[in-house]
Design a protein around this nucleic acid. Structure first.
Length: 489
RNA sequence: GGUCUCUUGGCCGAGUGGCUAGGCAGUGGUCUGCAAAACCAUCUACGGCGGUUCGAAUCCGCCAGAGACCUCCA
């Protein structure tokens, strides 16, 4: 089941061509560093892709890079964002694009997000966009004025289509609600949107077209690239909630006007990440950058958090809910994450110990395994799935401390596979321990040995010193009947 | 102003017309030289006011508060 923004309901997911799934997600405009809010959307869809793959679908995941300069504001004339930034940073526009594309990739890699199968750029698909404009004009849904081409929303609706179906607006409201003070606009109607804009002399990013030198409209690139790599109609289109209107609304209109077919079957929208109760946004400056979070260099949270903790934190909320960022919430996430990963380590080291098998316990575990799938199948409910994993954590810890197991070997290994699979493959969470280094391990084991000796000699001052000093370094010692083990936070 | 969404216990966050989500924190206990970890037990809920219903935090209405979109934004 997937919640489809177009219908406003959860719907059974039926790919056009099982087991193949075509999925497009709107990528970033690379004119500045990605902030955490941007990351949330990409991580939400990373989980969608991961889960679909996990249950056997063959996903073609396309995510674009918007590198053609779009205007800073809605003015008829004006500077585009990339050129503006290029001027401010004294760089070529394409240097800006390169710089922030690399930053974007770097950050997503830290978050362990899978790269898309295709990552097309807007500037690399100018020809396709021009072709699309031509086709829309040919089909009678667009008009040229003075070197620019606009989509004719009114005509589109007269032909029986419905501009506003995705965002739940009706065109009369839009007309009534728009400011009527732009007498000098060249558009026929204020809600018409640009497919192609004429470039002013100062505009650096420009291309030749049948309508003169100009640049493509923002909404067009996704339609053109989605069509090129996934077909005129494909399965899933994702993006942030804030792109619903007008961006995705326009994409639907363009797809239908160009190809006469519903371009996307399932529209998915990820909700915003807020900071101080307000949406993170580049334009308002209410942002937190990933490196500020990882390094702790910010005056909001007071300490550093690792990418995996942040990823875990986001998984604890549903992708369609607003999630607010706070130090308290992150601290809780950090502890929870370590608890989860610790249980993962335990189950992977644990040997099956035969005991009296309890049928009800067997069933209980099987139910938990099943619940993981049931919850993810219900519109990718990661928080609910996470709750199930924590019930498994409880089971794992119990198995670890008991002398024999009350479940069958088959169920035990099934739980192990499921637990590992959901944490690593579906949720993309990795252990942050760097203790696999054999020297570090050797040294630690030596210290533990010395401490045990000290303890046996009742030299607690020394044994505590070893433990406390290690703790300060982030190494935690745990004493149990079998001996002392360590874990690195 | 228009359209829409949200309001859950100390914090974060799921969820369903009747059956304790989960995480973090707190409290009591087991274990321990003391801790930590783990385990067991346990305490705080569903913005306010009405209505529908045998029963609503879950459905409806009103009120209050917050947010999103209507302009580039994930």
């Amino acid at each position: 089941m997937i919640y489809n923004s177009l219908s406003g309901k959860k719907e059974e997911f039926k790919p056009i061509q099982t087991p193949n799934v075509g999925m497009y997600v709107c990528g970033p405009t690379v004119y500045s560093n990605v902030h955490l809010g941007n990351c949330r959307t990409f991580l939400s869809f990373d989980n969608v892709v991961r889960y679909l793959k996990f249950i056997g679908y063959n996903v073609r995941y396309v995510r674009n890079i918007t590198d053609a300069g779009h205007l800073v504001d809605d003015a008829e004339e004006g500077e585009d964002k990339i050129s503006k930034k290029a001027r401010l940073e004294k760089l070529e526009p394409m240097e800006i694009v390169q710089k922030y594309t690399l930053d974007f990739h770097h950050v997503l890699r830290l978050f362990n997000a899978l790269p898309p199968n295709i990552e097309p750029t807007a500037t690399g698909h100018i020809i396709e966009q021009i072709e699309m404009v031509k086709q829309i004009i040919h089909n009678g849904f667009a008009y040229e004025v003075n070197g620019s081409v606009y989509f004719d929303v009114k005509k589109y609706n007269e032909k029986g289509y419905n501009y506003g179906e995705l965002s739940g607006r009706n065109i009369d409201d839009l007309i009534a609600g728009s400011r009527a003070l732009d007498g000098q606009s060249e558009k026929k109607n204020p809600q018409d949107f640009a497919l192609w804009k004429k470039a002013s002399p100062a505009h650096i990013m420009r291309w030749s077209s049948p309508w003169g030198e100009g640049f493509p409209g923002w909404h067009l690139e996704c339609s053109a690239m989605g069509t090129k790599y996934l077909g005129e109609q494909f399965d899933i289109h994702g993006g942030g909630m804030d792109l619903k209107f007008p961006h995705h609304e326009c994409e639907i209109a363009q797809g239908k006007a160009c190809n006469g077919i519903e371009p996307v079957n399932y529209w998915m929208h990820a909700n915003m990440l807020t900071l101080n109760g307000k949406k993170m946004s580049k334009s308002t400056g209410n942002t937190l950058l990933p490196h500020e979070l990882f390094s702790g260099e910010n005056n909001i949270l007071g300490k550093a958090y690792s990418p995996m903790v942040v990823r875990f934190f986001m998984l604890q909320a549903h992708y369609r809910s607003i999630l607010d960022f706070s130090a308290e919430a992150l601290n809780a996430a950090e502890k929870g994450f370590h608890k989860l990963m610790n249980a993962k380590k335990i189950i992977n080291q644990l040997q099956y110990k035969k005991g009296t098998v309890s049928e009800s316990e067997n069933n209980r575990i099987n139910q938990l395994i099943q619940d993981c799938y049931t919850n993810m199948n219900d519109d990718f409910n990661t928080p609910k799935t996470m709750a199930v994993l924590f019930e498994m954590v409880n089971k794992i810890n119990k198995l670890n401390t008991s002398d024999n197991m009350d479940i069958s070997e088959e169920v035990f290994s099934k739980m192990k596979t499921t637990f590992n699979g959901f944490i690593e493959d579906v949720f993309g969470l990795q252990s942050e321990e760097q203790a696999d280094d054999s020297i570090v391990k050797g040294v630690l084991n030596l210290l533990i040995e010395l401490r045990t000796e000290a303890k046996n000699n009742k030299n607690y001052a020394l044994s505590d010193k070893i433990r406390d000093e290690l703790n300060t370094l982030g190494v935690q010692l745990k004493d149990s009947k079998e001996g002392t083990t360590f874990s690195i936070n």
